[in-house]
Amino acid sequence: MIFNDSLYTFRYFIPDCNPLKVPRMPRGYAEHSRKVDAWIKESTDGLNSDELINHFETKFNKLWELSRNTISEVTLFAILDRAVFMSSDTHKILLKIKLTPSGIQWDEFRKTSSDFKRHELILAFAKTMTEFITIASNITDGVLTDTLYKTLETTKRKKKKI
């Protein structure tokens, strides 16, 4: 149910308190959302909340590292800032995230995350990751898309080997 594609796309349109804010589906969002959902479905099975945070930390670090080769840290920070901000609309646990010029402060987040439910974390980070990939992909006109997708595929393969 959590990984239902249409549900995930629908979530983008959950209205917030301001009726004038009409969220619009960014270019490529649905496609990126499907990729992230598929990856999460494959890779998060059986992980508890702490393990999930570790899992997402590894993934975001990887995304950051790969993207940094193409676009600057300043740009990456701006992308992540927007991705987290947009996702926190519907996933309030993300309001606890602090950003630094080199990415998310995971240790700080861990300290406040003991009460988070597993599915909350999955939904929140899936949304953040989709937003991140969408923005990074759009502003590079698709140049980064394959690289970002590869990050997701690598984990899948590793998992299969195990």
Partner: peptide, 12 residues
């Protein structure tokens, strides 16, 4: 200027 431009870009 760079920061402003980057943010405008990141926010599309």
């Amino acid at each position: 200027s760079y920061e402003i431009a980057i943010n405008l870009m990141a926010w599309e």
